[in-house]
């Protein structure tokens, strides 16, 4: 996993709530057996017509907006546990997703792939949407060490929560699996204790 410390970028607004993982990556694109390439089909049915022509009304097809931060409505990532959703966002180029509420499994999957979920208050989220509407080139700063997300144009900023352990993993690019493997002895001892 790649390290994440801070990111300064413009942002893409997606002011829709309840964006489920079937929208992020529809099931018919889950047939690949590697982690790469899912970005091509990110938001497939919102982004493209059935014949593959880009839909001009979808935000990712609007050249005015861009950047490595996606800003979306509440309950982002609900539904299926498919980690392909996090892979697709990352593969497309996003490194931060901002919302006022994240679904549980998606949040975990994002953190396991170096994609930072930033949960902000609803009013702050609306402030971000307004800032992008006023100027699509507005820069935002996601600072993991300080756990702060800032709208640079206005200087408005908010803190965000992250589990201290997951924060350490993101900052250093560590996987859970490295840590768990280092605990093998403890796991075996636990197994023994259950047998007695």
């Amino acid at each position: 996993m790649e390290k994440f410390e801070k990111l300064r970028s413009t942002a893409v607004p997606l002011p829709i709530e309840e964006v489920d993982t079937d929208q992020i990556i529809p099931a018919r694109f889950l047939k690949a057996t590697t982690r790469e390439g899912f970005g091509d089909n990110l938001f497939r049915d919102w982004r493209f017509e059935p014949d593959g022509t880009p839909r001009q009304d979808f935000i990712l097809n609007n050249p005015i907006y861009g950047g490595q931060i996606l800003v979306a409505g509440r309950n982002f990532g609900c539904g299926s546990s498919r980690e392909h959703a996090a892979w697709a966002l990352y593969d497309y180029g996003f490194r931060v997703v901002v919302s006022s509420f994240f679904a549980d499994i998606f949040r975990g999957n994002a953190l396991n792939n170096g994609l930072l979920p930033v949960q902000v208050p609803e009013s702050f989220l609306q402030g971000i949407f307004s800032a992008i509407e006023a100027d699509p080139k507005t820069q935002f700063l996601a600072d993991l060490e300080a756990q702060r997300f800032t709208i640079e144009a206005t200087g408005q900023s908010t803190g965000f929560d992250i589990d201290p352990y997951k924060k350490m993993c993101m900052l250093n690019g560590y996987d859970d699996i490295d840590f768990l493997l280092s605990l093998k002895d403890k796991i075996e001892t636990f197994e023994q204790s259950r047998k007695s």
Partner: peptide, 9 residues
Amino acid sequence: GIGTSQVEQ
């Protein structure tokens, strides 16, 4: 339910 990274774990 878990993600694939967790399946690996």
